[in-house]
Each structure stands twice: as structure tokens, then as C-alpha cells.
């Protein structure tokens, strides 16, 4: 399919000067969650809220909820499995993502 007006990102007239990006951190709009083939699942009974998964997440996809548990944000999680591997209590398991 030839790249036309409707498939291109933007026309050359709209490209900002110097290709500057004026909105800081706008990559949050880009959802990397669909790269995932394994999904981390937290067992809250085993969790000791140490925060290792949060600090070792390269995305960062983990965030603390009101109770202090660290919950993964599946819109960004790429399913690398570092959190499951680093967890000292084995509370996180990687489950195959079902489509």
C-alpha cells in the first residue's frame, strides 16, 4: 500500500522545527503491553510489600496501591519476567497470555 496522506504520521508542514518534541514523557501514549507473551500474576498472600519488583522493573510498570501492594500496569508490562525472578518470596508467577 503506498504511503499517502491518511497513513503518514503527519505531513511535512506539521513537523515541528528541528523535530523538537515539546511534550515531556509523551511515550506514555505508546502502549508496549501488546509485546507481552507472559503476564505476571501476584499472589497477595505471599507478598511482603518489599518493593523489589517495583524498583527492578525496567519499564517502570509497577505502582503501589493504597494498601501498599505493588501492582503491575499491564498497558506497559512487556512480560520480561524480571519481577518473578527477583521476588524473594516467589509471590509472582508468569502466566501465558491468552488471546
Amino acid at each position: 500500500m503506498p504511503k499517502g496522506k491518511d497513513t503518514a504520521l503527519m505531513s511535512w508542514k506539521e513537523v515541528p522545527f528541528g523535530c523538537y518534541i515539546l511534550e515531556p514523557g509523551n511515550s506514555v501514549k505508546f502502549k508496549t503491553g501488546d509485546w507481552r507473551s507472559f503476564r505476571p500474576v501476584l499472589d497477595k498472600e505471599k507478598c511482603i510489600k518489599c518493593g523489589q519488583c517495583y524498583i527492578m522493573c525496567p519499564e517502570p510498570a509497577y505502582e503501589a496501591d493504597e494498601e501498599g501492594y505493588y501492582i503491575v500496569d499491564l498497558t506497559y508490562c512487556k512480560g520480561c519476567g524480571i519481577c518473578a525472578n527477583i521476588c524473594p518470596k516467589g509471590a509472582i508467577t508468569m502466566v501465558v497470555e491468552e488471546v
Partner: peptide
């Protein structure tokens, strides 16, 4: 910010 395109892991 999240949403960068680094490889998994």
C-alpha cells in the same frame, strides 16, 4: 516515562 521501546528484560 514508561512506553519506551527497549527489549524485554
Amino acid at each position: 516515562a514508561p512506553g519506551h521501546r527497549a527489549c524485554q528484560g
